[in-house]
Amino acid sequence: MFNLAILKDTVAVHPADFGTPQELAIMTELNKKYANRVLHDVGLCICVFDLTEAGEGKVRYGDGFLWYKVVFRMLVFRPFQTEVLLAKVMSSDHNGVRLSLDFFDDIYVPIHYLPVPNAFDPNERAHFWHASGDAEAKQTELLDTPVTERMWIDKGEIVRVRVEGDEFYDDEPGPVKMAEGVQVVKEVQTRAPFTIFASMAEQGLGPVSWWATAQPEDGEEQDEIMEDG
């Protein structure tokens, strides 16, 4: 899940911080700049791990800051492909399930990565897996199944998923467009800068409670777990 990225940057330390030890001042600046931000093709930055190398602080013309060239290691969240994660179900809709890790919410399980056969019950706002059912069953047939046979992927449940891939988007707003002297506000759909796609379509994946007893067909067990969640 987590790894260390080696980055290089130049940071400015404000004169007010000259009293604090250099390393600490530099790390504070780096944390200010990177923490909780997505670095393209690197991942979500958590915090500075350590400084590998820092040059002499230099004063540039124009301000009183000390500028340091630093090579440092950053603690980054970016699970590798095929990695197995534990996550919480955040929401479900017709397109799939969205998962949360508390500090990162852009994990999606698209519908084709859910266990087959599955269906989305709009009344419950949740997907379910019909474990004993026919893999070729149609949505309407699945929605007619008795509720007790369904294995729900409920909101708030802890699920085990496999990372299938991730995507980075860098949507820059672009130049401001003017039409007849008035600024035109373009409707831009905001995409998350870093999205992970995960799968539940495998033995052992999906809600942890399904596999806790290795007897997923046990209806009673299932009910009990759902009450817990």
Binding site: F2, N3, L4, I6, L7
Partner: peptide
């Protein structure tokens, strides 16, 4: 001034370490 990525994945950390 530009930040540069020297190695995006130099080491893996376990959850416990993090």
């Amino acid at each position: 001034m530009e930040a540069r990525v020297i190695n995006p994945r130099s080491a893996l950390l376990s959850n416990y370490e993090v």
